[in-house]
Design a protein around this nucleic acid. Sequence first.
DNA 1: AGATTACTTTTAAAAGC
DNA 2: GCTTTAAAAAGTAATCT
Lengths: 186, 204
Amino acid sequence: MTDPKETINIENVVASTGIGQELDLQSVAMDLEGADYDPEQFPGLVYRTQNPKSAALIFRSGKIVCTGAKSTADVHESLEIVFDKLRELNIEVNENPEIVVQNIVTSADLGRNLNLNAIAIGLGLENIEYEPEQFPGLVYRLDEPEVVALLFGSGKLVITGGKKPEDAEQAVDKIVSRLEELGLLE
Amino acid sequence: RLRKWQERIRTKDAGERNLQFALSEIDRMASALGVPRSVREVASVIYRRALSEDLIRGRSIEGVATSTLYAACRQEGIPRSLEEVAEVSRVDQKEIGRTYRYISQELGLEMRPVDPKQYVPRFCSDLGVSEEVQSKANEIIDTTAEQGLLSGKSPTGYAAAAIYAASLLCNEKKTQREVADVAQVTEVTIRNRYQEQIEALGIH
DNA sequence: AGATTACTTTTAAAAGC
DNA sequence: GCTTTAAAAAGTAATCT
């Protein structure tokens, strides 16, 4: 039927960057509208962007983590907003800070129900974790690409730990072919 | 030289004391859970393996002891849920679960998923239902699991729903609350699993 | 008996305890 | 190891009407 690869959807992208400048988070928290800063609880200041939607964690060192974006392009857009907000506060920000994608979370659909019990035994109990008492998903760690897949009885899956969108595509291909050769799909 | 020797004895003694403590804790918890002696022996074998492979470092003795007991119950085919094990342990359920997964992975225990049928004898005995209900529940579990209904579902809730359904089919009705209490799941879970199971069985 | 909210799992980075 | 952030998957649970 439909190629499971075409059902892949990026759900979250995490990236890190830095403005190359130390920050006084206390004063940034005062001047930046909507900023959450509670150093007792966490050393980073939380700033949320609306369009695109994301959450940025800003640290004293000037390093920033952006999470919640739906694409790598959105990560760049969100961080540009953060950079501009900081510039408005008369904080120097490098012209083009390097943005490194650290993790991409993806969802997909194999289009068929899965017998997780059979898969756990078929794929080998060594590299699989399936504890339905604790979590309904089967945890499958792949070596190439190095990602973690969560497989569900519905045939839906989550792939996380990848650094580029192709990682998820490769992972889906490998999962499909492995399940097929074991006769565990369809 | 003498100091080194003393140190060795001291650590050996400490290790011995820790092992004794762990084994006595396994014994205490096993008694509280009412599992046979064979399970305690399996648990202590797993614990000694974990100790010899240095898996205890950075973890609490109690946590590892509880996890090995949880694993031993499963290996012996008389599982206790994490909730039940947590009730007799001083370690919380979440840590028992993650320690179990770690020990299981590192020792290559290759634990198979729990079969809901393994809970049926104990739950039925606690409910005081007949042998007929018990075998009917087993039949329901086998038939519906073959149709793929088991994937992702907790074994206790699945067993509880099958027992509830069986009690109705055998005219020995137990309420959802009664079954929920012995299985330690909510009535909502029993209702949900029950609906799926009777539909799969074609009982409308 | 629903509905809603919330927690379980996985992943990565940041700074500090 | 923990703290925080976001997101999906599906199951279970607590709370409210």
